[in-house]
Write a protein that binds this DNA or RNA. Structure first.
Lengths: 203, 203
DNA sequence: GCGATACTGTACCACAGGTACAGTCTGGGT
DNA sequence: ACCCAGACTGTACCTGTGGTACAGTATCGC
């Protein structure tokens, strides 16, 4: 048998799927190794223990998420020079992408970890928090730039408005899963888009 | 030792706390019985197996949640006859209640179960879905009544707008936990309130 | 042929969920 | 005073899982 080079990736992919379906602690090492066809020793060659699997899973997820979303909103900016309209285009693209997923969005590792955070060490919890804060900052900066050009008529809590995207995504994933309805999340994003229009364009 | 009558309740309370902190499968029967001071046989006297604990936990949570939220929005309606303004008062009361919790909101059992749904049987998943749908209906009816009096200038997806509350609550709980910031959720509710004003009052 | 990489195989331990079932204490009703 | 249902305790046992330890092996590139 020739040694494969993608075993670690396949372990992480399978682990991600199982963790989103059953939670981290219910995801047994045995089912992972059975799924990718290695032995327990093979698993512990790649990861010192289950906690290291948890960390690798989170890092991989955060990075994938960042790359996908940055690409979408960058594309929005490319399609429209104005910061507000570029953002509105980005939100539409985001909603379309979510609506066109081949199947139900599998869920967010960060949210899953959040409801099991006592399983993990400080480092993982901090990574998770940093990931959320990064979105607040990225969207917050956008909203700042927009507010400079389109001063909102009322006071708006821009940090909360930035957090609102992550909030709707996390909440939308939960409702979508619970109700087995993949349209919930994209519709929430479109509502958010309406809200942004109302705040900065007043219509 | 005299037999207590509240053992089952104490088991459920402790289980709820642990499940929200570690997830269901990582919550061991041993830690629960140690926490309330009974033996394993005592646990299996109250619950046939762990799955029955899961069901009882969810039912208890859904009922508590329903009672608390209905009381808040009923109070809003009592304070203002108009359906829109009663709802706006209710949202403000809700945000205040969330902001004044003695400590961080412990989280939502339904959301926790959602990210571990393969652990549970069909019945529990259906209960969870029915709980979410009930909120869509309760808020959807309110929004219908409001829209009759205050026709929105644009088309609005009222079902999505009803779901938006649950979405913001679930998402806000996740961000609040991840960032250890109890102000996130109430601020999201206030933003939702602003959105409702913008849609139905146009300001 | 050598060493790094990617594993396998074997053996072992503690703990968790779960099953089974007999025994015990207590308070309330008769 | 007695009985019985409710609320447990005690003991024994089985399986699966996470985790540890460590020696051995196949393959590839240099």
């Amino acid at each position: 048998m020739r040694p494969r080079t993608d075993t670690k990736e396949r372990l992480l992919s399978l682990a991600e799927e199982r963790v989103l379906a059953k939670g981290f602690s219910a995801t047994s090492i045995d089912e992972l190794i059975a799924g990718v066809g290695i032995t327990k020793s093979g698993f512990f060659y790649h990861f010192r223990d289950k906690n290291e699997l948890a960390r690798a899973l989170l890092l991989r997820y955060l990075e994938q998420d960042r790359a996908v979303l940055e690409a979408i909103f960058q594309r929005g900016d490319d399609l429209h020079d104005d910061p507000l309209h570029g953002f509105l285009v980005g939100l539409k693209l985001f909603a379309e992408m979510l609506a066109n997923l081949p199947e139900q969005h599998p869920g967010c590792i960060a949210a899953s970890y959040c409801y099991q955070d006592q399983l993990f060490d400080r480092e993982i919890r901090d990574l998770n928090a940093a990931g959320m804060l990064a979105w607040r900052q990225r969207f917050g900066e956008r909203l700042q730039r927009i507010a400079e050009v389109y001063p909102p008529r009322h006071d708006v809590d821009l940090d909360a408005l930035a957090d609102m995207i992550s909030t709707l995504v996390e909440g939308g994933l939960i409702l979508g899963r619970a109700l087995r309805d993949a349209t919930i999340l994209p519709r929430q994003i479109l509502l958010y888009r309406d809200f942004i229009r109302a705040i900065f364009l007043g219509n």
